[in-house]
């Protein structure tokens, strides 16, 4: 085993392919996080506040990506979005391409990160007494106004944690992405390619850079000033 030399590290930092792959990893993970916020929040609210037939099935389906091997997720996404399927042909008619595209990467990262977001936000919403929402409604606010003025201010901390968890999981994804979109290369795929093509010493600097960038990003996210939990 050899440690990466400083020269190799500096050389790698300047490598446009490495910079592009790290940026692609970060940007697609961030997009997956934002998608989870937009699409996962109503779902988390529904699961936290409602009882409906098939709720356990829905919860199991959401958690499925945590349990199954990740290449299976990639294969499933490709199967569902294949032009031979109704959904796939609809995507094709809209000009949306999944295989070998950034959209495909975001799609994969969204699915692997969503269970973590839903889990964090559902727990957050469940911790807010439902009576606060009932009182808000009785004071004249409708459902949306109640969510914006009561539920969201009390649950945003959990949403932020959910986004961080979702992005963290998305950044570490490899198995599903390599099935759906080998190119454009995210950082883990680039590392894998350099490892198989050139050996360990060429993949190590990319790994170090990804670790450092991820660490800085998550430190930054965690450093966002949060109000004292006891004060709410």
């Amino acid at each position: 085993m050899t440690a990466p030399t400083i020269e190799r590290l500096l050389e790698t930092v300047k490598d446009p392919e490495v910079i592009a792959s790290v940026w692609l990893s970060m940007s697609t993970a961030a997009t997956a996080g934002i998608l989870a916020l937009i699409l996962g929040t109503p779902l988390a609210y529904l699961l936290a506040r409602s009882q409906f037939p098939g709720k356990r099935l829905v919860e199991s389906l959401i958690d499925l990506p945590i349990m199954i091997p990740h290449p299976v997720i990639g294969i499933s996404i490709l199967t569902v979005t294949s032009p031979n399927t109704l959904f796939g042909s609809f995507l094709e008619s809209c000009g949306i391409e999944i295989m070998g595209s950034k959209t495909g990467i975001v799609c994969v990262l969204f699915f692997v990160g969503l269970p973590f977001y839903i889990s964090a936000v559902k727990a957050g919403i469940e911790s807010i007494p439902v009576r606060l929402e009932k009182v808000s409604r009785s004071l004249g606010a409708n459902k949306a106004q109640t969510f914006l003025r009561v539920t969201f201010p009390l649950a945003w901390r959990h949403m932020l944690v959910g986004i961080i968890m979702c992005m963290a999981r998305a950044l570490s994804e490899f198995g599903a992405v390599i099935i759906v979109a080998y190119h454009p290369m995210i950082a883990p795929v680039l590392m894998y390619e350099r490892f198989t093509a050139y050996g360990l010493s060429w993949s190590q600097p990319v790994a170090v850079i990804l670790i450092l960038v991820s660490l800085l990003f998550f430190i930054g996210m965690r450093a966002i000033p949060l109000p004292d939990k006891d004060s709410i």
């Binding site: 009182v135 409604r137 009785s138 004071l139 004249g140 606010a141 409708n142």
Partner: peptide, 11 residues
Amino acid sequence: PPEDRRVSLVY
């Protein structure tokens, strides 16, 4: 819906 009733609730 509750918001259309002009009924306030105190728990």
